[in-house]
């Protein structure tokens, strides 16, 4: 079997793991981004609906 070539670049990669709290933090931030965009969508949608309804309204 061929011996694996030595590569100092592979050796210098830090042997650590990502902090455990990070996953939770990112997940909850994704949730809040999703919720914020849903609220904005809802608001913008209703805002335009209200404007178009007001424009359609017969003044007489």
């Amino acid at each position: 079997m061929e011996e694996e070539k030595k590569n100092a670049f592979k050796e210098i990669e830090p042997n650590v793991t990502a902090p455990e709290n990070l996953k939770k933090e990112i997940s909850s931030e994704i949730d809040s981004i999703r919720n914020t965009s849903a609220i904005i969508e809802l608001f913008v949608g209703n805002f335009f609906n209200a404007i178009s309804a007001a424009l359609k309204k017969d003044p007489y």
Binding site: E13, P14, N15, V16, T17, I30
Partner: peptide, 26 residues
């Protein structure tokens, strides 16, 4: 989120290590 979390589990260490090798600060 469960699908994202699986992607995260596969790559979080690699990404964190890469960042650490750039900034040398945890």
């Amino acid at each position: 989120n469960i699908y994202f979390e699986h992607i995260y589990d596969r790559y979080s260490d690699k990404v964190y290590r890469k960042c650490l090798s750039f900034v040398k600060d945890e």
